[in-house]
Amino acid sequence: MLQYLIVQLCDTSTSYCHYENPSRTPRLISLEDLNAGILFAMKENLMIQFVYPDEELPLSYKKAVDSIDHNTIVSSLCEDQNLVAEADIVIFHEWTGLDYFAFNMEQAYVLRTSKDDFFDRYAQLKWVFPRVKRFNIVFTDIESFSEDDYKHYKKILNHLSENIEKLLIEGLPIQFNLLTDRLTLSTMNNCNAGWKTITLAPNGRFYPCPAFYFDDDSLIGDVHKGLEIKNPQLYSFDYAPICRHCDAYQCKRCVWLNKKLTLEINTPSHEQCVISHLERNASRKILKNSNLKKEMKDLSEIPEIDYLDPFDVREQWDFELLQQELIKFHKENY
């Protein structure tokens, strides 16, 4: 069921996820389409998230945006620094600037980084963690992870997990997507593009997420004619054979990356699975800390597994999970 509408206000709206925004020329969504999008969200009961460009919006757009309760996603480099200070989610596209940014405990932050930059500069995060409530890392080059990179990533996660563990025991409510999300999840919690979230692009058309606007022709409707999602079930977790058998619940499960790397929106790449499992296992290690268990009693165990990619053990997938799916299927359809 749809819950969120992301509105890409301009062709140059900041990227907040794995995709790059190649546009350099600002082209705002038309005011007519913006208002139609807001109306659509009101009628469908969707929470709007506006994604801003770095350039300041005209007054008429500001008025339209303010006509509905919404979340604001903005780049740290936006011209309108008042907007940055008030935004719900602030996006960093590079590590430079992190160490003198005025973090705010009310905001969430996303750092888009290449794997190599992360490997070189991850120690900076120790300075950031005590200053934020939520900090997300998004890799812009997941497909380039190699076997050696996995080993390196595992080491870094273990290193950062010691820091996170310490902060949690001290009572600081830090949320760091790579390590703490899995601690509190008992079911998949992913980006859900095309399933719970859709995007209205500056051309007035709907896409599963902004990445598809830049990279693909996967239209799913038009703000004036309505939604038309083809094979909508394939965006859901139930119709993803690998993900159905997975408990790396914090995985981004990015449908755009799935499509790009495997050609199917419901099938994650090997790299996506391994990275998510390394994070899952690092979370498991945090959970084993007995002091933390005392602090956070509601946390569930994360079982030990001997694989990093569920695809590699597909011959062992048991019938039980499928049976659960079938029972659910019958409940939903009869």
Binding site: A240, P241, L261, T262, N266, E271, N333
Partner: peptide, 22 residues
């Protein structure tokens, strides 16, 4: 490209069949 083989090697009856077929 092993990533492009993954959908084929996990393609199952349940995921691809409409309710009527199941």
């Amino acid at each position: 490209d092993k990533n492009k083989l993954r959908p084929f090697l996990t393609l199952d009856r349940f995921t691809q069949c409409p309710r009527e077929c199941l």
